[in-house]
Computed example of a mutant assay.
Amino acid sequence: MSFLNFNKNKKVYNETQNNGARLITFVEPKNVISEQFRTLRTNIEFSGELVDNFQIIMITSPEMSDGKTMVSSNLAVTWAQAGKKVLYVDADLRRPTAHSTFDLWNTNGLTTILAKGDQPREIVKKTFIENLEVLTSGPVPPNPSELLGSNRMTPLVKWMRNNYDIIIFDVPPVLAVTDAMVLRQHTDGVVITVKIGKTLKANIKRTVENLKMADTKILGVVERVDRKEEKDSAYGYGYGYGYGETK
């Protein structure tokens, strides 16, 4: 598997639960990191060429803090910058961040649509980025998996397909909870994010096996690299097609 890697000072990735993800592709579109995300976008499009009606992409990870939100939000920006009408869905109902990332209210969202039958057009929010709209998580529910697997999800997904070119689902880690496995039936493919030096190889293998057993198309793997060199810290992202052997 080949990866495209690059370095950047740690402050660029100072993402927290309270502050959301750093939208480097919006703040610094000419940065080498932004170009890397555009390359990732193109590679995902190539991987999805064999999928009929390729629109809905699920971004997940084996474990927490593997960088899935950083990847999903910046990918959404790059597709919007390419002229696609994009919907970013914060389907992580346990640790939502989209409202912080895009500076939005989270008093309603995905959970209120699924629990109360709210109309999505009234709930989806515009952002400061042209062509990009966001469906925040809404209030954190006591039963995330049950809500995501409810009957209201199917018509909601149909509405998304009819109104957007690209829909990105940011979902919880596969091995932490069942949410990703519940949602995979509504998606056209999944991208797995891992963090080198942190994510256990055994957990990466289990994640891939679980998704394959559920007949989910794996579009690729995004590798986040953290390296400490002398007094500095460096971060990187890379993209590889498919998935190689995990030992």
Rank of each mutant, 00 (worst) to 15 (best):
A234T: 15
I204T: 12
G197I: 02
M181D: 11
Q119Y: 13
P142S: 06
E49Y: 07
N210V: 14
Y235S: 09
V124F: 05
Q119D: 15
V32M: 13
S150E: 09
V86E: 01
K201T: 15
L110N: 03
N5V: 15
R94T: 11
V222M: 05
V225W: 01
H186S: 12
F54I: 08
M213S: 14
Q36Y: 06
L148D: 08
D90W: 02
V51A: 08
L211H: 06
V182G: 04
T42F: 02
S72V: 03
D226Q: 10
R38H: 02
R94Y: 13
V182M: 06
D179E: 08
F46V: 07
G20C: 07
L23E: 02
V124R: 00
R94H: 12
I218H: 09
F54P: 03
D66K: 03
D90T: 05
T97K: 14
L211Y: 05
L104H: 00
I168Y: 01
L135W: 03
S2C: 03
R41N: 12
L23Q: 05
A180N: 06
P29L: 05
L175E: 11
T69D: 02
K30V: 12
V194C: 09
F26C: 02
M1R: 13
E229M: 11
V157C: 03
V190N: 03
N43V: 09
D92N: 14
P29A: 02
Y239T: 00
V134F: 02
Y164R: 01
D226I: 13
Q36M: 12
N9M: 10
R121G: 07
M213G: 14
R161N: 11
S137D: 08
P144A: 09
R227T: 15
W79D: 06
S100N: 14
G240F: 03
I129L: 14
P172I: 07
T39C: 08
V86D: 00
G242K: 09
K8W: 10
K84N: 13
R206I: 05
M70V: 12
D170Y: 04
L183E: 07
